[in-house]
Amino acid sequence: MIRIIPGEWRARHPRLIDEMHKLRRSVFHDRLKWQVTVINRWEIDGYDALDPLYVLSLDENERVVGGLRLLPTTGFNMLNDTFPQLLPDSARVQSPLIWESSRFTVRMTGDCRIDAPVISRATAELGLALNEIGKAAALTHIVTVYDRAMHRMLLRSGCAGEPLGPPQMIGGVETYAVSYEVGPEWDARVRKLAGLCSIDLETAVLDKLRARLAS
């Protein structure tokens, strides 16, 4: 199940926001050992202060199993303001029709086999939700920065974005800036991945999108 939380409404969803920051800490800090700031068991940075749009994937017990955040490229965002070396000619990409997704994460356990359906479902749900949000906001593309491990995982499932340039080593991590085109083709690719699990993702995502301003 997808839950969409505008950053300025985080106080209405304290448990989900808490779980998201802790999940980010366990993935980015504890497991991947990225150089991220941890405050009071939360991984949190300056972009969280800009009230991004949070997109969370919840399991049947309403626990956060994955998430990402969206920011328009016209304002401050990670690609332009933290990783400009990933941009072609280091020129800012700032279009009202291109948003940035960052801090994409899904819960991992030691035994990938046991958690595999959960991981694929969360990844697929988040992918479909991104496309639906992209359509709702009339976007052409979504740009994102991720590492080599994520790129390989998404390449295997046929859902990798296309790199905008060669990867760069940042903080000891091979890092890519990639773009996705919003539209029906993306839906088809993600549904192929979603074929691994049984729920009707489109309905779940659309219902939550429609309800986003009612909650």
Partner: peptide, 8 residues
């Protein structure tokens, strides 16, 4: 809901 948000 609009000022400070990002979705139309």
């Amino acid at each position: 809901s609009g000022l400070g948000g990002i979705l139309p």
